[in-house]
Write a protein that binds this DNA or RNA. Structure first.
Lengths: 138, 138
DNA sequence: GGTCATTTGTACGTATGTATT
DNA sequence: GAATACATACGTACAAATGAC
């Protein structure tokens, strides 16, 4: 498949679709580097901004993580720790603030879970490492 | 407060901080428009790209929503519908795929909750409209 | 309907800064 | 120091959505 700037679909979306496909097909494995910006620019004959927007889109979906000086890696799906939702507690999903992102060491495109217990105390957990459960014999 | 390009903090982060402050202080109310790109460009004497990156940052945090031809609005915190987590079910938070974002009508910077019941069936819910609960008398 | 101004979206180029190897 | 890679930031131009008239 290739990129056609005449299509209605923006070039950067087309590139993101291509890369997403290569990730989901397993051609680009979790933990591996995707091609560099310069490489994608040359390979597809498009500008650097289009390339960067494509990668930013994948980042915002939580599919890749970009490390300065290195490149962009396909994110590995982390093992999820199960957290039991206590009686009288509630949970919401939202994006972290900048501070929370630093504190929790979260990649872009990773939400947080905010748990509020019966006493109103809240706790913020990394969304990519947690599964909230309620035991079968609740 | 103002913007100083000589600081270590990037210009676009400085602008995002300023706007976030104006939102959180209530000066820019939920539902209202923030200043246009052109206005911010002139007002702070910075380039359009820095302005756009600042707004994109706020979007990714779920603070604003941008509508083409209109501008960027401060997002209103929606009323959350409580969904009881059934016994034997689990929930995870993640970012939606592009398709899911369209289907659910989600703004950028809004995660989804994926509920898996005891039979393994999954359901994807809008993260900004849902609070998962477990009743006190579980 | 058509035109215009406003606003954001896409896409290019260039230059420089910073992190890593 | 050198090479590579991403980050920031400026400029330009045109496309597309919206609303006013």
């Amino acid at each position: 498949m290739s990129i056609d700037p005449r299509l209605h679909t923006p070039v950067y979306v087309q590139l993101a679709d291509l890369l997403r496909q290569r990730i989901e097909s397993g051609e680009l494995r979790p933990g591996s580097l995707i091609p560099s910006e310069a490489r994608l620019t040359q390979e597809y004959g498009i500008g650097r901004e289009a390339v960067r927007m494509a990668v930013a889109l994948l980042r915002s979906e939580g599919l890749v993580r970009t490390q300065r000086g290195h490149g962009s890696y396909v994110r590995e799906t982390t093992e999820r720790r199960t957290v039991e939702l206590a009686a009288g507690s509630s949970a919401i999903a939202r994006m972290p603030t900048g501070i929370e992102r630093l504190d929790l060491g979260l990649d872009e495109g990773v939400p947080v879970l905010e748990i509020r217990d019966a006493e109103g105390r809240t706790e913020v957990l990394p969304g990519d490492e947690i599964a909230i459960t309620r035991p079968a014999t609740g």
